[in-house]
Amino acid sequence: MSHVWVIGDGTPAYEIAKLAQSAGHLVFTSFVDEKGNPDELIYEQSQQGFAPFTRQPEANPDVIIEAIIRKSKKLTAWRGYAVELRKSLSDTPMLVSTLSASATEISAWVARTKMVPRQSIIGWATLPPIEHSSAVELLPTQFSNERALGLAKDFFTSLGKEPVIIKDCVGGVLPRVVASLINNAAYALMEGVASAADIDAAMKLGTNYPYGPLEWADKIGLDQVLGILEALCEAYGQDRYQPAPMLRQLVYAGHWGKRTGRGFYEYR
């Protein structure tokens, strides 16, 4: 058992915390709110699963996992954490989600605040439902050291996920492919090509996808999907990854998917 800190604000953070807890780790969660302020619980579901937000625990963590879904929030949150974290965490591997910025970019922020050495930073990427995936992507940067990478691998192995190493980038393999599928399906829906249910049924029956893209988006969280697309736009230019206006509208309206009761579909 080890001490795991999960810092985040979306479905991935929630799911990873839950998985770590059921794997026997002692999990401390810290969720950031809309403005990127740490320390404030906005995540409803955390009340059901594990202990809601705890102030910075006494003991040092063995691993810190971050999964903040929008880059703007992420930057603010990291600044907030910098003050606290720099005290004593110099050796703790810090696994940062590449869904909203590459590990190299986060390393640059972190280097500026001197909160942890950038050698400890490793990117990680996967998509909800994390429970159902047996592989997780690890994205070391050119600065990452073997020790941090080893601990990152051990952590995911302890959750029953096989770590697979890829080159650092924005998104990672699965998130990029799936976010692009979802975006493309959202355009089709917005343009009235077919209903959400028909688009999902067509993709499951016609090409054997595990979930329809729109129902998948509701599981991932539309806020997270938008976060991936925005980060890709910033990294690669606006054209290919331009988020469907409908997706933005749903996010602005607070319809973030299953966990808010409504996304592309309604849930009761």
Partner: peptide, 13 residues
Amino acid sequence: TIDRLIREGGGFN
């Protein structure tokens, strides 16, 4: 590796 991540990570056939 890409195929593997899509299959094992994403659950595609």
